[in-house]
Design a protein around this nucleic acid. Sequence first.
DNA 1: AACAATTTTTGATCTAGCTCAATTTTCTAA
DNA 2: TTAGAAAATTGAGCTAGATCAAAAATTGTT
Lengths: 244, 244
Amino acid sequence: MSDLNISKTSTTYRPVTCENCNLENLCMPKGLDKQEIGGLALLVNRNNIRQRGEAIYHAGSPFRGMIALRSGSAKLASFDQNGNELVVAFILPGEIVGFDGLATQLHNCTVTALETLNYCHLPAHKIEQLVINSPGLIYVLLQRSCNELDSQVQKMLMSRHSAEKRVANFILNISERLRVRGYSELEFRLSMSRKEIGNHLGIAHETVSRIIQLFQSRQFIEIKSKQLRIIDKKELFNFLQPIH
Amino acid sequence: MSDLNISKTSTTYRPVTCENCNLENLCMPKGLDKQEIGGLALLVNRNNIRQRGEAIYHAGSPFRGMIALRSGSAKLASFDQNGNELVVAFILPGEIVGFDGLATQLHNCTVTALETLNYCHLPAHKIEQLVINSPGLIYVLLQRSCNELDSQVQKMLMSRHSAEKRVANFILNISERLRVRGYSELEFRLSMSRKEIGNHLGIAHETVSRIIQLFQSRQFIEIKSKQLRIIDKKELFNFLQPIH
DNA sequence: AACAATTTTTGATCTAGCTCAATTTTCTAA
DNA sequence: TTAGAAAATTGAGCTAGATCAAAAATTGTT
């Protein structure tokens, strides 16, 4: 496996190594024998690239399998009967998508690159093989999908809160996810537009803009276009407390 | 397995048979050999009972395993740091809960009986055994959890719509879920309170009440306390269309 | 059957955040 | 480097649905 050893404190999302990639537990899950690990390595296609705006898979198309993002970022979006987009999630390096096609064998969502990205791909037809040869890996996938469910419940909880809390939580959530992958948690690029943030959080993009400016004016954050620096994490956390 | 052959057109939620129970695919999934099926039958505890208000498991407690509801109904709820309840879902006969504890081994949610209910229980410690002995069953669980994710995305989509659309969709959703399990889709008991419906849909209970009265005044539905009859399904569907 | 507690309904007011509109800034591509 | 397009910001008014309040209906209990 080709590790790309690039500084982890970079302010943009750079390639993750196999060690901190979320595929880690798929490529080399604890408790699995070497045969299973070797088998998986043969099944995964590495080093796929998409440019900003290009899709990895489309809603309505046949299940492509699981995708692990190695660098860059993406959005996961669904569409209503009228074609209106709903941004379900933003995907950061080391994170996995594809669950939206697994149950029905048809993708429910579209995954679109927010900037140039690189991903690994476990094709759909090879998952059936894993059921027989590497049941432990399927169990890992089950745990991951339950993690996704937990996140969705978290988002549902946030949707009861004010727009200010939602934006504060959003910034802290991205920060934390970057941190656990070894990136800078205090300075990073928000590669999605205000409109996409608003869509995801269920608030108007004008409101997102106003709140970001508010946080900046209060010196909680500094933002230059898409480049964000968290100045006062504690104050952002305070926004999540009941009194606000 | 003891089948309880009770009329499926009953207006309250009665016991499901093994054939239409959602555990069906766990008890006797297609493509699994008899050894696996027999093995599972030994692992599942049947005929557990809870009275209205009693919990099957609590948020924060260790993962209890998977629960399949055989009769009655329940609510799945999470809580914020302040103790405010969020109704994540309502559970109908034949449906499964427990995914909220699988990833972290701690339950994220509480499941509470909305009326007397009966359930089957696959204990947590036996799931590990299934990974080795019945990998096909774990794959079925994975598909189920992905189905849950799909539903969550559906709910997220609905949250962008008006309160009227949300209530119309809620009624039609319950109706459809009862239908696929073989119950009457046009006449049933809404065992949850207006407050719980509102909590789940993200609207005030007063608003739920007003909209239900509106639907009744327009002769789309007839409601006596918790007993609901759908008079004009087509009109309810119309509410989901863009023009409204 | 009567009481108390809870839930539901209905009315009246209030407000967070949306929508519409007009600039300003940033990005893209020649 | 510059023009045109897209995104972000800022302002001002508007509205769906929240909140507050009070009455009516339902449910559970002795």
